Amino acid sequence: MPHPRTVILAATAVAASLALTACGSGEPAKSADSAPKKLSGEQRTITEPVIPIPQLQDSPQPQGGYGVVVCNNVNFSGCDNVPLYKEDAPEDFNNNTSSLKNPTPFSVTFYDNSNFSGDSITLKPHQELVSLNPSGAEKGINDRISSWQPQVETRAGEKAVLKVCTDNDLAGQCEDVPIAEGSAQLNDSISSIQNTSDFDVTFYADKGWRGQGITMPAHTYVRSIDPDGINSGLNDMISSWQPILSN
């Protein structure tokens, strides 16, 4: 039979242990500021079947073969067919455009400043405007256009349908991006891609859908753009992308 004093000491030790458990481990509590923070660019979930890196193309069809028509005068006079994406309008048309034609399957937004800023007007697919200021008032954008870019999501019916990440396996800094970008926010930083859209998408080495490229089929995932580490792909080189659409 245990000695009474031994029982009392054991009971005291158990009580002390329970008190320590209730109050914590005895270490200083970590402040909210010291706790790990989730980044908006955290790793994405893989939902599509993995495919090998697509074959590198030296010259994919630039800008999908599409362009818009800008005119110096109303009623489509003094016109030229120009690229679909322009950070700075050509000199002849910068602040000197009075009518527009959009023969493409994309909606295209025209801005009164360079680099896609300021007041804007958007033409729907295949829309034409004989005058940018039909009322004669200063409310229009006549002789003010300085840049333009496509808004492909209106055609695709989807916005954030691509997952692009700076590391392999959809890790590192990641972003959910529209199906078309003429100038990527993660420029020259992308190492893995997931295409959750219903469209094949071409990714280009240069801004404005130019340079070498790879085309990813709809609903596919490439875990590494440069799996061999020998620049066989477009690892850390992608600057723009667009879907392959039919007219």
Rank of each mutant, 00 (worst) to 15 (best):
T21M: 14
V177I: 10
I244G: 10
A16S: 07
L100N: 03
V50T: 14
V70F: 06
V108N: 06
I51Q: 02
N235F: 09
A180V: 06
S34E: 15
V14M: 10
A218S: 10
S120M: 08
F110V: 01
H3Y: 15
T109C: 08
E42N: 12
A205V: 07
H126F: 11
V7D: 10
V130K: 09
R210V: 04
K139E: 14
D206E: 14
Q151H: 00
N195R: 05
A160T: 10
S240A: 09
S135P: 01
K159M: 04
K139Q: 11
Q194R: 05
A218T: 06
I8R: 09
N195L: 04
A29I: 13
W209M: 05
I225Y: 10
P217L: 06
N81C: 04
P2N: 09
V50G: 03
L84T: 01
L20H: 03
Q242V: 12
P2L: 15
E138W: 13
P36W: 03
P90S: 08
G140I: 09
L9Q: 10
N73V: 05
Y66E: 14
L132P: 01
R44K: 11
I230H: 13
S191E: 14
T154M: 05
Q57H: 04
V201D: 09
A205M: 02
V222L: 05
V69T: 13
V201K: 01
A13E: 08
Q55L: 12
G64W: 03
V14R: 04
I179M: 13
N113M: 08
A184E: 04
V50N: 03
T215C: 10
K159P: 08
P243L: 08
N247F: 07
L20F: 00
C174I: 06
P60E: 08
R155G: 01
A13W: 05
F116I: 02
K30Y: 12
Q63I: 09
L9P: 02
Q242A: 12
G118N: 11
L186K: 07
S114C: 02
G172W: 02
A137D: 15
Q43N: 14
V14H: 02
L129F: 06
D143Y: 04
T154S: 10
V201L: 09
L123V: 03
I53S: 10
T202E: 00
F76M: 07
P52M: 03
H3M: 09
G136V: 03
T21H: 11
S59F: 05
S197T: 07
Q242I: 15
V164H: 02
I238W: 11
D206K: 06
D58I: 01
N231I: 04
V74I: 14
A11F: 11
W241H: 07
P54E: 00
P103D: 07
Q185A: 13
F110W: 08
G182N: 09
Q212R: 15
Q43W: 06
S117T: 15
I244T: 13
L170H: 00
T166F: 05
Q61S: 10
F76N: 01
V130G: 02
T202G: 06
P49H: 07
F199G: 05
S239L: 10
D33A: 15
G26M: 06
L170S: 02
T21V: 15
A89Q: 12
T215I: 00
T202S: 07
K159F: 12
A205E: 15
K37G: 13
D200Y: 03
H219D: 12
I225F: 14
V7Q: 11
A22C: 00
E27P: 01
P105I: 12
D169F: 00
N72W: 00
W209T: 03
P125H: 01
N81K: 14
S114P: 08
L20V: 13
